[in-house]
Design a protein around this nucleic acid. Structure first.
Lengths: 132, 132
DNA sequence: TCTTTATTCAACTAAGTAGTTGAATAAGCA
DNA sequence: TGCTTATTCAACTACTTAGTTGAATAAAGA
């Protein structure tokens, strides 16, 4: 379970320590030891986290003597962003269609009143697959 | 581990079945049974997946007789998108600074490398915290 | 060469998770 | 009331994961 790249990326970022590492790598490259310093877990544990981030394609590593500097790979973020945007847009469009009926007239409120009137019949469709 | 909302959202979407459920809910609301039908796992398993999505704030449920229609909540996506964009932009800016030296001349490519200049030394900073 | 520094590997433990089956609850229908 | 449908709860299993400690590897420095 979770072998595709999208699963790996989401899974990698589900851990707050790993998100923090990503946040710090966004500022600049760093070695394993440097990255491990602020946390009170072992260096080995951080090394494992970096492996997970590397497998997800979020981080790449080079060599500098006995050090292994880590570098954030920004492109993989696009994979997530594309997935997210696709389904968010669809969901928001569905919202919009109904809200439009109400809002079309004059109402330019904050427009977040869900749960009014029934929305499209809950008909399911056996379409599947999540694309890329 | 993974008690904050961002962790819950990323973790929820790390599972391909749950992403598929989200994809289908983006098309229209559906009941547990309807959502479970296409998969060869038990209804109980899908019910659990929906619980995870609900805990992450991605799905809400109402009641219609003995059915529990599920509805996709699009707002939570913003939480992720904001986090992603923040660090992706930083990383791309760092990149851009170097590429700009080469591209600054004539290249009016797809234009994603604003901010020219030198790429900061890989010095680490003990700054921490991931914000929201 | 011997030592120090940086990182990874290997083996283990504790906790979490996705799945199962069987029973319980909730609400409409005969 | 009893029957059927829809969903959840409870207990259990198999697998994964984040952490540990101790040993191994890699490269620089005395």
């Amino acid at each position: 379970m979770g072998e595709d790249s999208l699963s790996r990326v989401f899974s990698a970022l589900a851990d707050p320590t790993r998100r923090d590492i990503v946040a710090r790598l966004a500022v600049g490259d760093a070695t394993v030891g440097q990255l491990a310093a602020p946390y009170d877990v072992s260096v080995q544990a951080v090394s494992k986290h970096l492996r997970v981030l590397e497998d997800a394609g979020l981080v790449s590593r080079s060599r500098d003597a006995q050090r292994r500097p880590c570098h954030l790979e920004a492109e993989v973020f696009d994979l997530m962003t594309k997935w997210i945007e696709r389904y968010r847009q669809r969901a928001e469009e569905r919202f919009g269609r109904l809200d439009a009926v109400l809002a079309a007239m004059d109402d330019e409120d904050d427009g977040r009143d869900r749960e009014g009137g029934k929305r499209a019949a809950p008909a399911r469709r056996d379409q599947q697959g999540e694309g890329s």
